[in-house]
Design a binder for these strands. Structure first.
Lengths: 367, 367
DNA sequence: TTGTACGCGTTATCAA
DNA sequence: TTGATAACGCGTACAA
């Protein structure tokens, strides 16, 4: 029992071998006791457990992982946890994974170097059994690495080709939001969304814009390009953008913000300009974050927490599954309109009857 | 280079030995190349790196951890991620740790069995280099295990004796909130906080209540026991509690809610009863969550994100530090009043002069 | 500067 | 049911 100095300098901790010796059994027996005490006589079981207790033995996770040739952890990569939607998704992931006795290796990445380093870690063998990537577009290089590592991975909130993913139909969501405004009779619509990201063809925000444009086109409504504003994803940036939009000689009677956060900025702008909502200006958000209800914001609901659960389930099935690795399997979650207090008819000038049923396409231009 | 079947059945991945053979060098050299290419001739370095690339070699995290005798991960244990304050703290932790190339092992625990399982994981050797526990009171058994595991640990938002911790002075916070109300001249004060937890002597909420009582006593104000309500930590529960309090024949002119979430419930109650805020009723929160500003809630600000950073820093210093393990080191972070729109003078009846100075200790202890 | 051999703590196999 | 022993892949003395 005396401490044995090792090359590491620290006092050596008791190993399974010490336990075996102490209990007068073989290491194999101890191992069996440790992992589901099958096939061990009650008497030896007692002896071994006593030895474990007396020696304060704690198994080595590293050795176990090495021997088994695989870890028991799932990685989760996400952007910085400032975005409420990322947090909500993470919550769903953790919910599901936490009940499956996996370790969860969380990494938030912001800078490119963090991201690269993280990929190195992620792709190590015996480190992770699976990976969930939240709201991060994989670069070509990253895709290559992931495939090479043969790591089961599920993307959440993005849907790169060739990988399983859980996502929503952002274009349809943009349409839903816009149609809601159109049904109130708005014909002067503005849009505020995220900056386009040069490296990636489509972001959620860009898709929502597409839906917006689609719906406008379908309604035969022309577009004022000054009313399509793309700014950094932040409340204040959106406020500034909205303010300039609303200061123009002509101004929109409704603004669709591609996220609730940005909608908040639009509300700020309206307040600063003394515009009443929804009297002078209707404001539509997207996401249905928790504060949306608090503020009474009309928005499009997307199932954030559930999306996390869904991604985790998908990953687990991928990991245990026999299925061919890495074919794609794109889950698209449903959206729905959540009308609240920030949307209503336009200020009255051309007073349209709020359209009864939708689906009836307006017949033409409205002036 | 042909695939070699192993006892595990899977195709064997390339090891450091394969790389060495492929490059015509020894494993030691490869190892040196891997960990900071010192003491390697430029030519062999090239050869080795080429071999690594050609073989698609990826090091085994498990083997490395085993050989090194230590992992490179820090565990974070927290309650379910529904509470905004927990998330904010986590954000701070992840911020700091993410820049130190540690893996972050996140586990949320809700049920007792989850908690027990987590402790098992946490206490394995070679699994974690350190642990941060957020908003979870350790049981006696858990404390024992942690000490035995000699695992550097920092508690956040709780301050158990014998462990380092980062916390705030909840009693002082309760006083700050209450004094703010007293200075407006309120003399009829209500309190809404969490249910007491039988297993632990003091929760944050209980301490805030103590501060509330202290301040009232110092101001010579008697207590109406019907106005001290303790309910589950949830908006709706607080609303119900506040409603019954406000329905009484006599009712308080101000309520201090021990958390912003509960303050939201109090505001709900006021709305339902047609009470204007702060005209008829002043409402005071605690925490300064993000929505507090949104709602214009007067509250006590505590540095949530920063507390996470602080805990992470403390843990890192503990881990690298020579210091004796597990002595305690209780960091207490500062609070400040954040007065906003939900507090004001009482409805006019007894108009007190705003109390002058604080700091004069009341003449006796109040429990 | 490079190569060799051993140890890390566990699991799995197989003979007893 | 049990015990002995061979992997597992990497780090690291130590010898060359």
């Amino acid at each position: 029992m005396e401490p044995v100095p090792t090359s590491h300098g620290a006092r050596r901790a008791n190993t399974i071998r010490d336990v075996a010796r102490h209990a007068g059994v073989g290491v194999g027996t101890v191992s069996r006791v440790l992992n589901g005490g099958e096939r061990v006589s009650a008497e030896t079981l007692d002896r071994v457990q006593a030895a474990i207790r007396e020696l304060g033995y704690r198994p080595s996770a590293a050795a176990r992982a090495l021997s088994r040739g695989v870890a028991s952890a799932i990685g989760v990569t996400a952007p910085h946890l400032t975005s409420p939607s990322v947090v909500a998704r993470l919550r769903g992931v953790v919910d599901t994974l936490g009940n499956n006795s996996y370790d969860i290796g969380l990494a938030t990445v912001e800078t490119a170097s963090q991201r690269e380093r993280r990929m190195k870690q992620v792709c190590q063998r015996d480190h992770l059994n699976g990976l969930i990537v939240i709201s991060l577009h994989p670069t070509a290089e990253e895709r290559r690495q992931l495939i090479e590592a043969e790591l089961p991975v599920v993307f959440l909130d993005v849907a790169p080709e060739g990988f399983p993913s859980v996502d929503i139909d952002n274009t349809a969501g943009g349409r839903i939001a816009t149609e809601h405004l159109l049904e109130f009779g708005h014909t002067a619509l503005g849009f505020i969304g995220d900056l386009p990201e040069p490296e990636f063809e489509f972001t959620s925000s860009a898709r929502r814009l597409t839906g917006f444009l689609d719906a406008c086109a379908a309604a035969g409504i022309g577009q004022n390009l000054d009313w399509i504003v793309r700014v950094a994803h932040a409340r204040e940036a959106a406020a500034v953008g909205a303010e300039t939009m609303l200061r123009g000689a002509k101004r929109p009677t409704a603004i669709f913000a591609a996220s609730d956060t940005q909608a908040l900025g639009v509300l700020d702008a309206a307040r600063r300009l003394g515009l009443s909502v929804p009297g002078d200006l209707s404001v539509m958000g997207f996401d249905d974050l928790e504060f949306a209800e608090l503020v009474g914001l009309s928005t499009v609901h997307q199932p954030l927490v559930e999306s996390g659960r869904c991604a985790a389930d998908l990953l687990l099935s991928r990991m245990s599954g026999d299925g061919t690795p890495q074919d794609d399997d794109h889950v698209v979650l449903p959206l729905h309109l959540e009308p609240r207090g920030t949307t209503g008819p336009p200020p009255a000038r051309s007073t349209h009857t709020p359209a009864g049923k939708r689906g009836d396409r307006p017949t033409g231009h409205h002036e």
